[in-house]
């Protein structure tokens, strides 16, 4: 076979394909970000429009909303591929599945994680988050949302074959998100108070590299299980 794709070509190909699919289904992929905005809007309505209170809890609110939005969008990583059978083609390909999984997770993050970068500062402003916390907020979103996608991919891969995977998925994934939530929210919190945040950011980076190196293998194993 002369026209066999090399590994990096396959990676780029899959990435481009997923991005294209997302581009064609714009409305569907805009949902998580809309959900993110909506959840955050609910908090002032429930707690009351007290500026001091809102600016105090803004980092926590933004991060909990980001977590929920990430979880809501997870299902789209493998669902449609599982339904139309392209997932099996991916599993049958001669390339290591873990790398191809990584391409899909990358695409998913570019589509659902990255838009949070644009929405979050806006919502931070609306909640009265102090100015000096905004760069840290962006940094934590940049570093930590890929971790959410990577860990979430394992959960989706485990539940993709189930008819009612949604509830189970949240039960599986949310406990694993706890460390990310703790460090990201605390980083923004500290930045708002004017403290140093390098410790939290370093930990988040460590989580990123750890999940980047381990999660694709677990996801690939789980996909093989789900597709069998």
């Amino acid at each position: 076979m002369n026209n066999r794709l090399s590994l990096s070509q396959a990676f780029v190909f899959l990435l481009r394909r997923d991005l294209l699919v997302a581009l064609r289904n714009r409305a569907e992929y805009a949902m998580p970000i809309l959900f993110f905005v909506l959840v955050i809007t609910l908090f002032p309505l429930a707690i009351g429009p007290v500026p001091e209170l809102l600016s105090r809890i803004a980092p926590g609110i933004v991060w909990v909303a980001a977590l929920l939005a990430a979880m809501l969008s997870l299902d789209s990583i493998f669902r449609s591929d599982f339904d139309d059978g392209s997932l099996e083609q991916i599993l049958l390909s001669p390339h290591p599945v873990a790398v191809l999984v990584l391409a899909k997770v990358c695409a998913h993050w570019l589509v659902t994680g990255l838009p949070l970068l644009i929405a979050a500062p806006l919502l931070g402003q609306m909640l009265g988050m102090p100015q000096q916390a905004l760069p840290t907020l962006l940094l934590t979103i940049l570093i930590a949302t890929p971790v959410l996608s990577l860990i979430g991919a394992i959960g989706v891969a485990l539940t993709v074959g189930l008819r009612k995977g949604g509830i189970i998925l949240s039960l599986l994934v949310l406990p694993l998100y706890v460390p990310v939530l703790i460090f990201a929210a605390s980083a923004v919190d500290n930045a708002a108070a004017g403290f140093d945040v390098s410790a939290q950011l370093t930990m988040l980076l460590a989580f990123l590299f750890l999940s980047l190196s381990l999660s694709p293998w677990a996801t690939a194993a789980a996909l093989r299980m789900s597709a069998s």
Binding site: I154, L158, L172, L176, P179, M203, F207, A218, M225, S226
Partner: peptide, 20 residues
């Protein structure tokens, strides 16, 4: 499936414990 989840969880339990 449960085996994969248990292994993933076991990697995570110390991290969760430490971060909490």
């Amino acid at each position: 499936a449960v085996a994969i989840l248990a292994i993933v969880g076991a990697v995570n339990v110390p991290i969760i414990h430490f971060s909490v």
